[in-house]
Nucleic acid binder design. Structure first.
Lengths: 195, 195
DNA sequence: AAATACGCTTGATAAAAGTCAATCTATTTT
DNA sequence: AAAATAGATTGACTTTTATCAAGCGTATTT
């Protein structure tokens, strides 16, 4: 039996509400456990993102590949995050992004229509969605603010302060890409910062 | 009597639902019309953003000022947008942003607690919030993607394509700041693009 | 009408970041 | 164990963008 406890804990924590036994059963009925091995894709550019997945274990990157073949990482996702290209997921349009497992992934996945029909009616879940939406708005605003007004070095320092576990968990070339820098530039930034 | 029609139209359009006469009365009771003259502040750094305002007429910029005294514009807002620093508005913490009228503003403003108590229970409104939240997530993702993977010139071209009315309505130095560029750099980018 | 602000442009120079190539180390994979 | 791969670093050089300063029109203000 797959581990739904992480999902229950997460929903309850963010919503501040309790899930009844019946609620839990609805989750268990509609979310499907799935494993994705390292280097496998959860989503490929051009495909429709039919599922969103709650990460129970593992990590993934969401990225594009430009004309020169360079990767640009938009998101790094770990346990207790939702995996999806939400534009494609909401609108059922082909995605511009790839999502690839960086470590073996265990997720609980579900389609948009099943969420709408069965999961969103659960009050704790929609309360969680509201909190999550607020958190995401705030985080997106902060990241955008950094991006337009700070140097690479300042953005890196902010990441070290705000998400130190990301620095430990992911190799530097991925962190660099997430910050909009090349690996060489981040390497030099770190060298200079050591003074 | 202030123009609530723009707000009603907006809520109905985004939600796909109809507002009853009673619903409308709830809006009229709790939203307060306010005028803010050009160059006046809706919000100042360090203050708590107690209100969100629906823009009926006019335009505003949301920006920070860095240690060197340079402005960085995070958002440019016009009719049918909501004005606020949502981090400060949701959490009632002091804001890091300033919001200033670029043109005389007519807004309909309301506090967070009044929204929660009286407005959000209106189904069309909460449906609108859901759609808005999705749209914002998608737009934020797209802008972030541009920021980490494109040059200034490409970001400018994208803005011209996606929001041509912004280019017409705001001076170039504000557009430059919104794109994370100096006015000089944007001026040169445009000169080169004319070839 | 004169004075002032503002916005845009251009030039010269500096700083930040990217590109390409080489090397080194530490894992993985075979 | 050997081979292959992945990640990090460094050097030389280029491109992109910022900075500072000046000049020029056009609104606004007085």
């Amino acid at each position: 039996m797959h581990n739904f406890q992480a999902l229950f804990d997460y929903v309850q924590k963010l919503s501040g509400e309790t899930l009844s036994a019946d609620d839990r059963q609805v989750f268990i009925t509609h979310f499907k456990p799935k494993k994705i091995r390292k280097r496998q894709y959860f989503l490929q550019e051009g495909d429709v993102c039919k599922y969103t997945g709650f990460i129970v274990k593992g990590a993934a990157k969401t990225f594009t590949v430009d004309e020169k073949g360079h990767e640009h990482i938009l998101k790094l996702s770990i346990e207790n995050w939702w995996l999806a290209d939400f534009e494609s997921f909401y609108k059922l349009t082909p995605s511009r992004f790839n999502i690839e497992a960086l470590e073996d992934l265990e997720i609980l996945q579900i389609t948009h229509s099943l969420v709408e029909e069965f999961i969103r009616p659960i009050p704790a879940f929609s309360a969680m969605q509201n909190v999550l939406s607020q958190n995401n708005t705030i985080a997106a605003q902060k990241r955008m603010q950094s991006s337009i007004s700070q140097t690479g070095e300042e953005r890196f320092q902010e990441l070290v302060n705000d998400y130190p576990h990301f620095i430990q968990r992911f190799p530097q070339n991925l962190i660099a890409s997430y910050l909009g820098l090349t690996p060489e530039t981040l390497s030099r930034i770190r060298k200079n910062a050591l003074k």
